[in-house]
């Protein structure tokens, strides 16, 4: 049977694409599979077991860093979302004004500057303030993560505001709503998907950030990623696979939610 001519077919492309998908997922799948390994090896299968998950849950240090990571992500992304929402309201749908470019540059700086540069910059400042004030709490990490999350939270909120039909607010004003009422009853409810998306992006970004945390943290302030980075130098056991798998599962949940929130229109 003759193969039908298809305009979109390019020979070999399908094979390369599938190879790419396999290459992308194989290492992750192997990592997940060996988290359930009975023996200590990460490459020789010895039967199914949950012992490494038990080990991870029993590990006080893993529990501490996990809770710290989640707490930090929650606080930083909440703060970043509030600040980004205000900033998005300030910078969208206004006539151009002086300093607008500077505001955009400031907001997007964490996206453009390499993380390691931001990291050492914060290290310098934090070291100085620590010496001056003696304060060594979580405040530094919260501030650093919040700043880093702002551009990520800002993007979907701004996008949502820009695609929002302006005549809806005009219609509200026409129907006797004040500025505050129009915001409360029209703009804000319509902005919610953008705000939720922004919060989730910020949460994932804060949870994943390793470089900035590495440079800013004081002793005993390890997060899950910096703890893992430290452990990777040593001979690792499948316990690390188990931790990574749980972490992956959490990210996957958030990303799926994010997809559902952003793909739902109107």
């Amino acid at each position: 049977m003759a193969r039908q001519f298809s305009i979109s077919r390019l020979p070999g492309f399908g094979a390369i694409a599938l190879l790419t998908f396999v290459l992308l997922y194989l290492p992750i799948i192997i990592l997940v599979v060996f988290s359930f390994n009975e023996n200590q090896s990460q490459s020789i299968w010895g039967g199914f077991s949950l012992r490494w998950y038990e080990a991870a849950f029993d590990n006080q240090q893993v529990r501490d860093v996990s809770i710290r990571s989640l707490w930090l992500a929650l606080v930083a992304s909440s703060l970043a979302t509030i600040l980004a929402t205000l900033a998005a309201l300030a910078t969208t749908r206004v006539s151009r004004f002086k300093g607008q470019t500077i505001i955009y540059a400031l907001i997007n700086q964490p996206l453009m500057v390499p993380e390691v540069v931001t990291g050492i910059a914060l290290l310098i400042v934090v070291a100085f303030i620590k010496v001056q004030t003696g304060y060594t709490g979580m405040g530094y990490l919260v501030l650093a993560h919040t700043a880093f999350c702002i551009p990520f939270a800002y993007l979907p909120i701004r996008a949502r505001l820009e695609t929002m039909d302006r005549t809806l607010e005009q219609a509200a004003a026409d129907l006797y709503a004040s500025h505050v009422q129009a915001f409360r009853y029209i703009t804000l409810p319509l902005l919610v998907p953008g705000i939720v998306a922004g919060f989730m992006l910020g949460f994932v970004v804060s949870l994943d950030t390793v470089v900035i945390t590495e440079f800013v943290k004081s002793a005993g302030q390890d997060t899950l990623p910096t703890y893992m980075l430290g452990q990777l130098r040593r001979a690792v056991t499948p316990e690390m696979n188990a931790i990574a798998t749980l972490f992956l599962a959490l990210s996957l949940c958030i990303v799926t939610l994010f997809f559902l929130v952003t793909s739902k229109r109107g």
């Binding site: 039909d165 005549t167 005009q170 219609a171 509200a172 026409d174 006797y176 004040s178």
Partner: peptide, 29 residues
């Protein structure tokens, strides 16, 4: 402002509030 005038507008795009029901839209004013 438009909210202080005894006039109402039917917009070309209708500008119905997408997150409200038909009844809520009508009762908004």
């Amino acid at each position: 402002g438009p909210n202080a005038r005894p006039v109402n507008t039917v917009f070309q795009s209708y500008a119905l509030f997408p997150h409200m029901t038909v009844a809520q839209n009508i009762g908004f004013g």
